[in-house]
Amino acid sequence: MSLFRTSRQLPALPEAVFAAIEDPVRLARWWGPQGFTNTFHTFEFRKGGIWEFTMHGPDGTDYPNQSEFLEIVPARTVRIKHVNLPHFELSLSLEPQAGETLVSWVGIFENHEFAENARAFLESANEQNLDRLEAEVGRGEAHGG
């Protein structure tokens, strides 16, 4: 197993950050590295719910994704299990801090060799994902949907 961890302080309350996660239209806008887009097929945002989508790379490559929501605590935690390859669990934690939110992103990959070979890409992709989340939170609901 391999662990990836990153965090970012966002200038918004946990409820505002969570709103950008639970709304599939907003989530599709920011999920993934820079230049990637998403088409959601199934989005059952509840414990045990299924999330199926295709991530479209900037070069036109499609990446099918299938996940299950393991845990959802509003404005606090979202945990998913990626059920197609590569297998991993991802936890997003939202901690209130003086009117802002500390977003902690922890991924645990089953295949150590895959994860270590992809570590540089994955770490960069995670930072880009948080950049996109921060921009989406900044848009707010008034500009969303």
Rank of each mutant, 00 (worst) to 15 (best):
R29C: 13
T77Q: 09
E89Y: 08
H112I: 14
A28E: 04
T54A: 04
S124K: 13
P74I: 05
R46D: 11
L92M: 09
A135C: 10
L122W: 10
A125H: 11
D23S: 00
K81M: 02
G32W: 07
I108K: 13
E100L: 08
E68S: 04
L92Q: 04
A28C: 04
F36M: 00
F36K: 00
F88P: 05
V103H: 10
L92G: 04
A75E: 08
F36A: 00
F40M: 11
W51N: 07
L90N: 01
D59G: 02
T101S: 13
A115W: 11
N111Q: 14
L133T: 10
T101D: 04
F121A: 13
T77N: 06
A125E: 11
H87K: 11
A20I: 06
V73E: 13
P64K: 09
S93T: 14
Q128Y: 07
N111V: 10
T42S: 09
Y63R: 02
A120L: 13
L133N: 10
T54Q: 05
E71R: 06
R119S: 09
H41S: 05
V78E: 10
V106A: 04
E95H: 13
E113Y: 14
Y63A: 05
E89W: 03
K47E: 15
A118R: 05
F109V: 07
R119G: 09
G35D: 12
G49A: 09
N117V: 08
L90D: 01
Q128E: 14
F45L: 13
A98D: 12
K47Y: 08
E123S: 12
F109H: 15
L94N: 05
L130Y: 01
F36P: 00
E100K: 15
V83C: 12
K81E: 04
I80E: 02
G35V: 15
E136Q: 15
L130P: 01
I50E: 12
H112L: 15
I72K: 06
D59M: 00
E100A: 14
E134F: 07
L102G: 08
L133D: 09
E89M: 04
A28K: 06
S91Q: 06
E100F: 11
G60L: 01
G60D: 02
F43E: 07
F114M: 13
D59P: 02
T54L: 05
G99T: 11
N117D: 15
A125V: 12
S91Y: 05
P33E: 04
P64D: 07
M55V: 03
Q66A: 03
G48C: 11
E100T: 14
N65H: 00
P86F: 03
F109I: 06
L133V: 11
A118Y: 04
L133H: 12
I72D: 07
V17W: 10
E95T: 15
A98H: 10
I72Q: 05
S93Y: 09
P33C: 03
D131F: 15
I80C: 02
T101Q: 05
V83A: 08
F36V: 00
E22K: 09
R76M: 03
M55K: 03
F121L: 12
Q34I: 07
G35Y: 14
T54P: 03
T37V: 10
V83G: 06
T77F: 02
S93H: 10
